[in-house]
Every structure is written in C-alpha cells, then in structure tokens.
Nucleic acid binder design. Sequence first.
DNA 1: CTGAAAGCGCTAACAT
DNA 2: ATGTTAGCGCTTTCAG
Lengths: 354, 354
Amino acid sequence: MARRRQAVTIKHVAAEAGVSLQTVSRVIHNGPNVREAVAGRVKAAIDRLGYVPSIAAQRMGGSRSYLILALNDRDRTIEDWRQRQGTDWVDQMLLGGMLKCAERGYRLIFELVDTHSDHVEREIMAALAALQPDGVILTPPHSDNGIITRLLAEQEIPFARIGSLQPGPGMALSMDDEGAARLATTRLIELGHRRIGLIAGSPEYAISGLRVAGWRQAMATAGLPTDGLLAEGDFSYASGRSAAEMLLRAPIIPTAIIASNDQMALATLEYARHQGLNIPDDLSLISFDNTPIVRFTHPPLTAVDQPIAEVTSRAVAQIIDAQSGLAVLDTATVVPAGLIERGSTAPPRPGSPE
Amino acid sequence: MARRRQAVTIKHVAAEAGVSLQTVSRVIHNGPNVREAVAGRVKAAIDRLGYVPSIAAQRMGGSRSYLILALNDRDRTIEDWRQRQGTDWVDQMLLGGMLKCAERGYRLIFELVDTHSDHVEREIMAALAALQPDGVILTPPHSDNGIITRLLAEQEIPFARIGSLQPGPGMALSMDDEGAARLATTRLIELGHRRIGLIAGSPEYAISGLRVAGWRQAMATAGLPTDGLLAEGDFSYASGRSAAEMLLRAPIIPTAIIASNDQMALATLEYARHQGLNIPDDLSLISFDNTPIVRFTHPPLTAVDQPIAEVTSRAVAQIIDAQSGLAVLDTATVVPAGLIERGSTAPPRPGSPE
DNA sequence: CTGAAAGCGCTAACAT
DNA sequence: ATGTTAGCGCTTTCAG
C-alpha cells in the first residue's frame, strides 16, 4: 500500500500566496490580525489549490478536531436494525445531527457503545482517545449512565444527554413528554371524548411517568375522572395487547385510547379490530413516537411526533457553542412535540356511554 | 476552551514498560522483531494504562487512519429521512459496515455527498483531505458516477461500488437481482401459478432490466409465456398503481404479480383490494427490497430480501484486504438474495384461468 | 532484536 | 499585522 500523504498542505498555500504558514492558518480560522488584501490572496490560493486542512493535523496541532461523537447503545441499536421494525431513531438522529454539524463545519461520527458491559469506561476512553472528538452526544440509556457521564465530565468534554431529565453534568435535552400527552388528551377532549384511556409505558423509564402525568392533568383540567382508565404496559407489543384487553373489557369501555408508544398502539389496534371495534368510529386511538409504521396501518394512526431530529440538532448546536466558550444554558432544553392527525381519531359515536 | 491533550500516550507506555517508543509501536502493530517477553511487558503496560493510540497521530505519522468512509447521496438520503417511509437502507448499511469495521479494528464514517452538484469533485476531495480514510464505499448513484470513481482511482484509494454492475475501477458488489427475480418467479410457479405478471422498475436503473430478465428466464424455463404480463413502472407508488391497473384490467388477469420494489407492491396491494381481489387467494403478490413496511401490511408481503448489510460487510472486508495488500478479487461480487415468505403468496384458486 | 532521529501537517506562543 | 519556533503523538527510516 502506497503511503498516502496530504496532496496539498498549508505550506503549498503559503507559498502560493507568498505568506507564512501562520497567516494561512489565521485566515482559515477567521482569526484577527490579517489585512483584507492578504486574506483575499490567501483565500484565492486556497481555492485555486483546492486546499482542505487535515483534521488529523489540526488535532495534532492542539486545536479542535471538529468531530462530534454520537453514542448509541450497541445491543439495542443492533437489535433494532436486525429486527427491521421500521424504527428510524438512528436516521432521525443523523438527520438532525449531521445537518447541523455540516452547517457549523463539523462532522458527526456515529458509534455504538455497550452500556451494560463492565468495561464501558474503557470503551468510551478508547473512542475518545482514538477520535478526540470536541463533544459527545449521549442517547438513552447512556444519557443516565452515571459511569459515562462522570467520565465525560472528568475529561471536561462538552456533552449532551438526550432524553434525560435528571440533573447532572452535561446538557440535558428532551422532548416535552408531559406536554405531548396533554396535547393528545386535550385534542381528544375537544373531539368530544370523555372516557379516554391511557396505556402507560414501563415505569423504569421516566418518560412513562411524564406521559401519564400529562394525561392526568388534561383530564383533570376538563373535570374528567381517570379511574379505571389507566393500564400499565412496558412498551412491548405483548404488554400493549394485555393493556388494551383490560381497558376494552371493562363494563364501560373508553371511547379513546392513548398508547405510550407505537408498538402498544399497534397491539391496541389489532385487539380492537379483533373485538369488532371500528377505528376511529368506535374507538379513537393515538400513539406516541410516530415511527414510520403508523403511516401504513389501517387506518393510519394519529400520533404524537417525537422530534428526534430537532433535539439532536439542538444538542449539536449547544455542544459547539459550549466549546466555543459561548454562554451555555444551564437548564434542560425541552423541545415541544407535535401531534400528527391521521385516520385513527374522530368524534365519539353519538350516544356513547359517558 | 481548555486544550485537550492525549491523556496517556505511547511515551507513557514506553516508560512504564521500560522500552523505547518504537518497540511499543511494533507491539501495537504486531510487528516483527520483538521478543515474546518484551511484547508481553508492553501489552501489560498498555492494559494497565488503558492506552489507545490516537488516530490523528497515527495518520500524521504516515500510517493508516483506520477509517472507512461510506458515501451516500445527500439529497436522496435526506429526502428519505424526511419522508419517514421506513426505508432502512442506511441502517442496514451501518449494520453491516460498522460491525465488520469493528471486527477488523476500523471505524466506519458515514457522510453525505451531492452527486449532482458540479463540485462533487471538490466535496469528495474535501472529505478525503479532512478524514484521510483508508478506503471509500460508494452507494448508488455514486457507484456509477464517473467523476467520483475516476477521482478515487487517481488518488489510489481502495473503494467499493455497491449496487453497480458496470466494470471500471473499484470493486463492484451487488445483490443478485437476476437470481432473485428467478427465485421469486420459480417459487410462484411451484405454487401452481402460470400467469405471473411483473411490474418493472425504471429502465434508467440497470437492476430493473435484471429483474425482468430473471423473471423471463424462469418463465421460459417452465415453458410459460410472458406476453401481456410485463408492465413498466418507475419505482414510484403512482407508477405501481398504473401498472397494476394495466395488469388487472386485462381480459385474462394474472394470478400472481411480482413488483420490482415495495412501493409498487404497496400500490398493487391497494389497487387489488380496491378491485375486490383478495390477496393471496385471488392474487399472489411478491415485492422486492423487503423494507420494514411490508411486514405491516394486510397481509404482510412475501418479499425478496435485499441483503444490504451483507453486501456492505463484504465491501468493508474487501477494502481492508486490498489495503493490506492481500489479493483483491477482480471480479464483481454478487451476493444472493433471499425470499421471505409471508402472507401474500398462496396457490392460485382452483380453476383460475390458464 | 531494539533504539534514536527525523518528520508528518498544523497550531499556539512568542517574536518582530 | 505578520513571521518564527517549538512541539502534538506517532511512524518510518536508519543505526546499533
């Protein structure tokens, strides 16, 4: 293998423009103390030669690497990829992250790390040592992994914790789960529903509680009771089915159900159909997350849209700002979620039980 | 921003093990000329210190970067991500590529590049200069972009062209489209079908022709005619609908249809239902690609599975081998596709028209 | 078999 | 406002 050296280096540019290396460097970084005329000459030379600085060399010189590292949980991600259930979490993350990075002259590098392994520490250190990123983006469950956050804090690397609500080092960013649940519930109330069931997610996840809270709030505000309308699931399809069964076998069944994720909503849809219930006429259904599959069910599901791209985009922006020494928000960033109305919601049948 | 320096460098390891830098370097690369005992001591020191070489420094020293760059078309990819139709091309590529890279001690970096722009050349050079990857993976339509392949060849960077059949520089890898079409057709013939329609993709893509050819071959082998059974689409949902309409409005309709991609299969499913045709009883349907959505239709679709992960995995392996000076296959690699049988295929109704 | 020296491309710190 | 110097961490010569 031939050794590959940089084709055109800062030296060539310097020679071409008739200035010193340092001046070129300053021009590249929009540094101060360069006369317009000289800067122009240098820029022209850069253009003419098609010069692009080597990240490796920049890093070696002691400056930034212009690399931001996004860390996902290895097992969960690979499992999702293998299952091919259409979850586009990673894609949305890349969409938001890569575009924002590009906009700011950075690059996003996506890596997988094993949260549960006892050598997480080593794995993270290895990634940091190898890549020397300027910042790190953590996603669940890394976001709340104390070992990881402590390590990053020690290394003084700016990092974002996506989907985390806990205080701690790093910048917390998440979607407004409570507000989203409130939004969905309120919309159903507006449509005329009074008995609105909620299928909760696993209590291990903080978001589950938030979604329940939002629903409770909206119901309370409208003066509606919630007794017998809460069923607990764990985000799995199977648990969604049991929960739906519980809600739909009650003496007085709800006219609408909100499921805390798409899998459980799918299970509810299936069970309702199996029970001879027409959606949306007999039962309105709203799901959380808005992964691609809910567009393809019959009917397509109204869903709370999880703004992953937006959250990631902001995470990148905050990291870059932090690293540039700009003011860093100390408070958690909460991104509002939207409600995408499709065919699974409608007013309740006239004369539905109160 | 505090300057971040490598915490533990090769120097520390050398000191710890009581040897020179060079010896450590040799141990890291399994170089020759190191006594067992010394190598052991060095390895122990590396472990104890948790040392990981800096990619940047390695690159600067003139060795590999251990980075492989995967290039996707910017517009198409972003559009896919925004549309959220559940296409998991990128995910499958990452799955195959990242795992194989990790296995070989490399890292995969995913980037977007604008094929159509007139400064592709510049964009690619910038990525190469900045990242200095050891190899590049091209995906359609980059794989057949002469400007890109010429550039890469000039730079003498090993690269793979995924989904390309054309000869040229770089290693061509693709799935066996012809064989896959043959497989699908043969399976339908086995089930008892004799009138099997095919909805072709856009003739601009070489794979379209291959899929048609495979179907023709299988039909010919079974002594079945194909007249009036070929409808041309362009991979879009709308074109799939027109094609289905054409096939299903003929005097004698087919008992089975193969659509050249999932979108067109979806359209066919929808149109058939609209025509009161039951799938699979009145009409069997097989689609190509096997993106996640075909699991969620009613019934779930039998589909040809496009082995993107496998193809990418092999591309990575070939690049690393090439770069290590190992023998490089000069012939194109063709990966067989599988057929995933789901609910959209069944024997034809007894007494169906011949 | 092992070590020492030179340099990769770039930047921060210090001149001028 | 610009140039010079001294590394960054590593690898590849080339000596021992």
